[in-house]
Design a binder for these strands. Structure first.
Lengths: 236, 236
DNA sequence: ATAGATATAGACCATCTGGTCAATAAAATT
DNA sequence: AATTTTATTGACCAGATGGTCTATATCTAT
């Protein structure tokens, strides 16, 4: 029915479960439009095969010993061969999905899903799209929003009225900013064209206001309380 | 056909384009399962209406003056009424989609999409799900992965062999860690049960290895080069 | 077994840091 | 006009910090 004038897409499989590996190979071969150019049961071997055969898509199992699945995504991406990675997993672990997508997987499908969906996912990914089943998209965003909640509240906190940094005068902020670059009294004095004594006075006032005892603590306070993010305004 | 024994979902609309506002209201009213409890042409009014009528879902236009759309999401979320927010937009600006989802929108639909899809989106969101059309999901992930690329490379850099932190011995790392808490020589000596002189020796070695001149710079180096993220292992 | 790396510690010294008190001038606020 | 805040500087001092040199005692790897 279908002739080979349209070149097949080259697929590589990495999964520590050989049964599953063989199963998928059968499935893809039956489909006819795919060419399974290699299979591997561990990541390092798989990465080598990717280097050798330069497949279009890699199906990469996420549920392997250690965090090898994620590492695989990183390693393959680092080769910069434009290889699309489709993550495969036995269950919908939100954290895994999030990390996999974050570091560059083009899609994520569950092993429990119908084979037609796997085929579809591969095709979408081949076409340069991202493919995530609706269920996983939901899982992803739940996790995504949750993981940003703390960052959001931290950020709100950073521009809170409780922030001791707001007590600082403009000049004191300038001095503190220089302190956060690890500059000495003399250095600050030179940069601001004021005497070293003046710098000391400012610094002492800063310590008072931030309720710390030394420059290191002041710098840490500044960093942890959004000294930088504060002035960049609402980053949402 | 359909009787009112099943209570209608309460919807509120916020859009600075009145025509569009009226259009959606008609559409939703025709549908029969929705009850448009309020409409507003700007965010502050809208937020007040949310407070008053406590709708189940807010359809919120993203393309309003300033960054009012995003601000609306933040404001409504802050009310903590469990209101689901469905973002509406005229075009698929990846940055907008990303920010909207990040701060808590439950979905994002384009005004150009078929009305059936809007209805579907509302229903999904009502059911506690996240709804993003496939096209927008792709846009989102492109942006998502791009925005993490720099963070990834920074992180790779953090566990790079070039990282001077790797030159430190275990003991020196311990000392540095205490320094990053703004602790004095004497304090470190007490914590580690060694003499103050020894601490000084370690600190001096640390300075040498990190090529800095004082503790503040050492602490900054540690923070900027993933001193913390490094030991948390691959955070991917 | 021997060389190298690591952890420990003392002595000495110059400089930096932080604390305190006092004082002047300009700017902002009341 | 009077008061408060801010920015500036000096003097003095104790203690912390950083640089250098030396010297053990382990431990590790060749």
């Amino acid at each position: 029915m279908r002739r080979e004038f349209k070149k097949k897409s080259r697929i590589l499989l990495i999964d520590d479960n050989y049964e599953h590996l063989a199963g998928i190979r059968e499935l893809l071969n039956l489909e006819g439009t795919f060419d399974v150019v290699g299979i591997a049961t561990n990541v390092s071997m798989g990465v080598n095969l990717v280097k050798k055969y330069q497949p279009d898509v890699v199906l990469l199992d996420m549920n392997m010993p250690d965090r090898d699945g994620l590492q695989g995504i990183v390693d393959i991406t680092k080769l910069e061969l434009g290889t699309k990675i489709l993550a495969l997993s036995g269950y919908d672990d939100a954290d895994l999905i999030f990390r996999a997508m974050k570091i560059g997987a083009k899609g994520y499908v569950l092993k429990t899903m119908a084979s037609a969906q796997l085929i579809y996912a591969i095709e979408e990914v081949l076409n340069g799209k991202i493919y995530l089943p609706n269920a996983l998209t939901s899982r992803f965003f739940e996790y995504f929003q949750k993981s940003f909640q703390e960052e959001n509240s931290r950020q709100e906190n950073a521009m809170d009225e409780e922030n001791l940094l707001n007590e600082l005068t403009q000049r004191e902020e300038e001095v503190l900013e220089l302190l956060t670059q690890g500059i000495t009294y003399k250095g600050v004095a030179n940069k601001l064209f004021i005497s070293e004594t003046t710098v000391k006075t400012h610094v002492n006032n800063i310590f008072q206001k931030l309720q710390v005892n030394d420059r290191t603590q002041a710098v840490l306070y500044a960093i942890n309380n959004g000294f930088l993010t504060k002035r960049v305004k609402i980053a949402v």
